[in-house]
Structures are given as C-alpha cells and as structure tokens.
Amino acid sequence: MKRRNLLWVIGILVFFFSACEKKDKSSLPFVKIYDDQNGNRSFAPLSMCKATLDNGYFVLSAYDGWRIHLMKMDKDGDFEWNLELPEQYVNAVPSLVNIQQQLYLVCMDPIALNTRILRIDEANKSVTSISTLEEVSYPVHAYYNGSDLYLMSCPLSSQMTVIHKVSQALDTVVKIGALSISTNVDDLLLKHVMHTGKHYPFFIRSTPENNYFVINAFYNYSFSTVFFDSDLQFSGVYNGAAMDGGIASVFPLGANQFALARVSGENVFINPNANLNPTAIAMATSIEAQGDAELDHEKPVLIKQINISSKPYLCVVASGSLQLSKSNLEELVLQ
C-alpha cells in the first residue's frame, strides 16, 4: 500500500516537472525596430539576406533619398553593427547578392552616374568597391542566377531599359539586351531611385530551366513583364496598364508555370500557379487571378518559397490596406 502511494507521489512529481522549461529555442519569431535619435529620419527597406559567416542577417536600406544604409544583426534580430555609406555611393539596387559565399551590393556614383559593385566584408564590418561599370547608368536591379550576375539599368533620357550580363570577375559587361520604352520616364525613374514617389517592382528572374529571363521593367509606354531568352533576346511580353499596373511579383515554378501577383486598378490579384507563355504578347490583366481588395496595391508583394515541417510552400506576403483593414499588418497566403 505504501509503495503504491509512493508511486503516485513520484508520478505527480514527474508530471509537474515535465511541464517545466525545455531548452530548445533555436529559432523564435521576433520583431525589432532599430532606433535612431533623429526622429525625422526615414529609411526605405531595399533588401535583406542571410550573412555568410554566421546565422545573422544583413539589411540594406535607403535614407535621405538615395543614401545607403547597411545593417548587420544576429539570428535573434539583435543589432550588431551598421554602416552609412559615404556620399560617393548612392542608389543601391534592392538586392543584396550572394556570389560564392560573398555578399555584394550594387549602387551608383552620384557624379559619374555609373555603377559600382561593392563587396561586403563581414569580418571587418566594411564595404570595398571592387569594380566600376562605366556603361551601366542608373542601375535598378541586380540578379545572380547561380552562375552570372545580371544588372538592369534605365539610363536617364535614353528611353531604354538595358539588361547587362556581367563578367565572372564582375568588372565588365559581356552581353546586353535592350528594351525601348518609347517615352521619357526620367521623372518616374528619379522618383523611384530617390524614394520620393511610386516605387516600381523592377526585377529579373530566370526560369528553373534557365531558358528564359522574366524581367519587370519599363517597356513600350508601360511597366511590363518581358520574357528574354537565355541570349538576352526579346521573346514575349505581358503588358501592364501604362505605368500603373502590371505584374508586381513573380516566382517561376518551371514548365511555364508561375506564381504571381499582379495589380489592376487599386486591387492586388494573386495566382499561385499561372500558366504564362514566354512568347506571348498579351496584357497582364488577361492572366487569371484572384483579387483581394484588402491588400495595398502600392506596397511591394513578395513571393518566397519556404519549408514548413520539410514541406515546401509558396508564401505570398503583401501589405494590408490601411483604409480597409485599419491595420498595416502583413498578410500571408500559403499555397
């Protein structure tokens, strides 16, 4: 009888203490705001990527118009160090590029208006200019497809969008593809790079088969999604509605299937599995998609692939419309 009582007591104690703290808290969610005493300074987020030396993150942003701010934080989001880049580097493109475990950022010289590629030295908490690309003016996007770096530029007064393939040494342009805009977009471009007006979702993506590039850029009186073949030759286009509509984000799935978000009027439309023809000449509004009136059409839309419990998901991240939802929380749509 006494032994049975003892077992009961031990059982109760085991139950109680099993409820106590377990130590594995390796990846807890966090929200952080990085303080600046200057209450009037505002930052425009451009890009975020994982550090290569540890599990931390880099955040690239713009302040005072097109000045560049680079910040490093640890895996829990705690601040480690930051850099306000000198005035000779401005207009960072919204993509930190990881090339063979080395991080780079692409920006512009405000006097010569040409493009600089800077290497981020994580150990020494600094950036170093490694090359100047004289022929690339007003860069708006950079993309590394695993073997080559591609830059998109939109030189002032040229009425052209240019795609540049950069050499392996990152010091010269080895191939270009061009699109005629046929109208002057200088005002729109300057507002975009200075963060004083509409921010356009410029991007370059490649299909998993590497047979096409999907390019969001100014083209033919509109902001459109253009297909280039692997030789940077025009293949097809899904035109946006002048400078205000079109595709906001694309995630190529392969076999001409794409997850995408497009903007039409003041609504954001999402299709996680749309069939696009790379040789078509069509309107972006012709792509079937489901609209969501509570999403803010002026804010960026991101489509990322994430793994939850080893199962791949496509994650569409957009901002809620302040007027409709009374909040500016991000909305998550999982496929």
């Binding site: 952080k32 705001i33 303080d35 600046d36 989001g77 705690d78 930051n82």
Partner: peptide, 14 residues
C-alpha cells in the same frame, strides 16, 4: 526589447 539601440540612438539600451 522591440526597440534596438544603435550607435545613432540617444540611449544605450531600452
């Protein structure tokens, strides 16, 4: 802390 101190902060911590 939700707010993170940086070298540009008025306070060293929150």
């Amino acid at each position: 802390s939700l707010l993170q101190a940086t070298p540009q902060s008025a306070q060293k911590d929150f």
